[in-house]
Amino acid sequence: MTLVIAFIGEQGAVMAGDMREIAFQGDDSCIDELERELYSGLIASDDDLKERAAEFGVTIRVRDDKAKVSEQNGVLIGEVTETGESEIHRRRLYATRGSYAITEVIDSRLRVTQRGRASNFVVLGNDITKQIASQCIERAWEGGTVPDAMRVVMLTMQIAASVTASVSRTFMLVHTDLAANLSDAIDKDSRE
Rank of each mutant, 00 (worst) to 15 (best):
Q25F: 13
R151V: 06
R36D: 11
G98F: 05
D107M: 08
E51A: 12
V75T: 03
E55P: 00
V174I: 08
G74K: 06
R169P: 06
H175I: 01
D65F: 04
R36Y: 14
S86E: 14
T81M: 07
E85M: 14
A23E: 12
I159Y: 04
I22H: 01
I137D: 06
L93W: 04
R61M: 14
C136D: 07
T59W: 04
N126T: 12
V146P: 02
R52E: 09
D177P: 00
G17I: 01
E79H: 09
G125N: 05
F171G: 03
D47F: 11
D65L: 05
S134R: 14
G116C: 04
V163L: 14
M19L: 13
T145S: 15
R139I: 11
I5T: 05
V80H: 00
V146I: 15
R191C: 05
I22N: 03
A95R: 00
H175S: 15
I8A: 09
S162F: 06
T103L: 04
A140M: 15
K68I: 07
E55Y: 11
L42S: 09
R52K: 14
N120S: 14
I128T: 07
G12F: 01
D27H: 12
L178E: 13
S29F: 04
G125I: 02
V146M: 10
L76Y: 02
G116W: 14
K130P: 06
T59K: 10
Y39S: 02
T113H: 09
G116T: 07
G125P: 06
D18P: 02
S119K: 13
V69C: 03
T164R: 00
I137H: 11
I102C: 05
G116A: 03
S29L: 12
A179S: 14
R97E: 08
T103A: 06
A23Q: 12
T83D: 13
I102L: 15
R91A: 13
E33A: 10
N181P: 06
I159L: 15
I43W: 01
E35Y: 09
G143N: 04
E33K: 13
V163T: 10
D27I: 07
K66R: 12
S166D: 07
K66C: 11
D127Q: 14
H89N: 12
S45A: 08
K50T: 07
I102T: 12
G17P: 01
K68A: 09
T145E: 08
L124K: 01
Q135F: 14
G78F: 01
R109S: 14
I132W: 02
A185N: 03
M172C: 10
E35W: 09
S29P: 00
R91L: 12
G57P: 02
R151P: 01
A13C: 08
D189I: 01
